[in-house]
Design a protein around this nucleic acid. Structure first.
Lengths: 203, 203
DNA sequence: GTCTATATATGGATAGAC
DNA sequence: GTCTATCCATATATAGAC
């Protein structure tokens, strides 16, 4: 049996862990090799360079995120229903991949143009974001949704959904919460966020 | 005239810019020297090491943030009034120092324990945070505020206040907003955030 | 495919002249 | 206090044996 696939996958898994933990500049190829229990040279054999390897990990993260948006925001359901789906699926996904938001944020700071083009390409495939924003405007005209600039609307939802996962490292320390406890809080927040949007964004 | 003070301050200013832009691991001493228009050796002459220099910058950022909390949350005003003050002063401060939140966030990821001890020491000086949380509980008992676990309450406020500044790099690109336009949005959000808290957190 | 050894580059830090 | 030159450790990347 050929062990190629295993090594290749092992490297990806290790790289994901190390890059997410330390960011691009802080990550060491040696640390990735150690984590994958293989030799440093293997990293280059399979992925040629640090930048290339990092790109693979970032692609995976972008895929994961854009998938959430596509699944939740496509179709013809009312805006508030779509939001409910987004809140739920995003929370579940991040609970399983806790450090993805921070990782993505670092990359945005490091190389905003590269990140945005990756993300936008994904979302433009089916015009997901564009269509959703049009739908918001429609519902605003129909006086279902409160008239509010689209960026403000989007910013508000994303704040409530994403920030708690970014701030996790602080909050667990300040309030002495366990990982499981925090995940539970995130679960409770699903309803809280929906309720807040309902009370403040609908007419 | 002695130019010592100028150089020393120049370095700090340059270091702030470079560290904030690239994070600790990504920042280069050479880049800081270039930015300050002095020699690399000078950095070590004044601040001995990269880590020490970074520490100074971080201290400044922590000071700035903890000051906001102390000013807004001390005293005997009702919780909602304090929040209004916090929303306003925090927004103003960040509009003038746009990348502080991302910088702090990166440091939390890099060295959570060190950061938290710095921050906590600042806030413990006058028991700011502790007292504020007690006040929230009091108002919850008096049925002014909705009964909600304190961490959830804090997480919600902080999400609405902080996240928009973190997400700025993405949003300006996705929506094609100028820096001034974004600052304006943040200004508008002051009222929006207060209103959301009012509608969803008070009884 | 996998390893050891090594090349090459870069970054932080120091020595020493002025 | 400021500079040039240099040291030394570390990091990425490659060569070449097995």
């Amino acid at each position: 049996m050929n062990s190629k696939k295993n090594t290749e996958a092992d490297i990806l898994k290790a790289a994901k862990k190390i890059f997410i933990q330390h960011g691009y500049a802080g990550a060491r190829m040696q640390a990735i090799a150690d984590e994958a229990k293989i030799n440093k040279a293997m990293l280059h054999y399979y992925y040629r360079s640090k930048e290339a390897l990092f790109g693979r990990i970032m692609d995976g993260a972008v895929d994961l995120m854009s998938q959430q948006f596509r699944k939740a925001l496509s179709g013809t359901a009312p805006v508030m229903d779509k939001l409910k789906a987004l809140i739920s699926s995003y929370t579940d996904t991040i609970n399983q991949n806790p450090y993805i938001p921070i990782f993505i944020l670092n990359e945005i700071a490091r190389n905003p143009i590269n990140f945005q083009s990756k993300m936008q390409r994904k979302l433009e495939e089916e015009n997901v974001l564009q269509n959703f924003m049009l739908q918001i405007m429609e519902e605003q005209e129909k006086e279902i949704l409160r008239p509010l600039p689209i960026p403000q609307f989007m910013l508000t939802v994303m704040s409530l959904i994403v920030f708690p996962h970014i701030a996790k490292p602080v909050f667990v320390r300040v309030f002495g919460i366990s990982d499981a406890g925090y995940a539970g809080m995130m679960e409770d927040r699903k309803e809280l966020i929906y309720e807040m949007m309902q009370k403040t964004m609908t007419l």
